[in-house]
Design a protein around this nucleic acid. Structure first.
Length: 269
DNA sequence: ATCCGAACCTGACGGC
DNA sequence: TGCCGTCAGGTTCGGA
């Protein structure tokens, strides 16, 4: 479900409800997630929540003695509900807060996880992450430099979080369509101006999606339980066989790196 | 360095 | 109604 815009939407949604509050209790109904729920998470009573931030698709919640690292996997959601709200299927973790609200984690597929770290940016899962695509350091020059010698298709390369983080399967196809680049183009064949255009289109599509609250295809929800409405702005993702908005050629779907890719065979070269 | 398939899970949907 | 195969926004891991 969640790529960078969706995780950012969740981050902004939960922040005002949890920052400054104290943890009353942690309730874990299902500890078997992508990795087992970390032990320190069971003993957070009385700790104050200091801040919430996002790095790649990870949510980082700072308490007084360390940080909760949350990943939403494919189907995870975080919602702010009144404490005592009835439990639904796959509601795995509750963080009960001093303001009578609960931050509730639901994840049908259990690819998500909650870990604990005193130094999250140096956690094994985070320490080798590439640049944030909305950071000024991510520009055409960076892209072009990173692509030197990369004889790898551009789409799976864009989804490699050692290079640039947060771009998942939807926005990789969307950004390449907007940049008029074929997903199967080898990285080292991009010119400087093509890399420049691609960098701009990536940050543009991500920013637009954040403004719209993310893309809800199936089950994505923000912290308020509402769907994001960027899905209706998608130009190629999920549109196999439908006409390209630019030239009417049918959009094609094929597999790259075990993931579905969508593109216009005429507009993208 | 790259690529591939498998693995971790549940649910929705289409076909028979 | 039911069973089966396919697909889904992510990421790690082992092996070629």
């Amino acid at each position: 479900m969640p790529e960078l815009p969706e995780v950012e939407t969740v981050c902004r949604g939960i922040a005002p409800h949890i920052i400054g509050e104290k943890v009353v209790a942690t309730v874990v109904r299902q500890a078997k997630l992508r990795w087992p729920v970390a032990q320190p998470l069971y003993h957070l009573q009385g700790e104050k929540i200091l801040q919430v931030q996002r790095r790649a698709k990870y949510l980082l919640i700072q308490l007084e003695s360390g940080w909760i690292i949350i990943h939403l996997g494919m189907s995870g959601t975080l919602q702010i509900v009144s404490t005592g709200t009835s439990v639904q299927k796959h509601d795995h973790i509750d963080l009960l807060l001093s303001n009578q609200y609960t931050m509730r984690f639901n994840d049908a597929r259990r690819f998500g996880f909650w870990l604990w770290s005193e130094d999250p940016l140096n956690h094994p899962l985070l320490k080798n992450l590439g640049v944030e695509p909305l950071d000024p350091a991510f520009d055409g020059a960076y892209l072009h430099r990173s692509l030197q010698g990369k004889k790898r298709a551009i789409k799976p390369w864009l989804m490699d979080n050692r290079v640039v983080v947060g771009i998942g399967n939807i926005y990789a196809s969307e950004a390449l369509y907007r940049a008029a680049l074929a997903p199967q183009r080898l990285g080292n064949t991009l010119t400087e101006s093509q890399a420049e255009r691609l960098a701009i289109e990536i940050s543009q599509v991500l920013r637009e999606a954040i403004v719209h609250g993310g893309s809800t295809l199936r089950d994505f929800k923000g912290a308020d339980g509402k769907a994001g409405y960027f899905a209706q702005q998608l130009r190629v993702y999920g549109r196999a066989e439908e006409p390209c908005y630019g030239c009417n050629t049918p959009i094609i779907r094929f597999i790259q790196g075990q993931r579905a890719t969508f593109s216009c065979p005429k507009c993208q070269l």
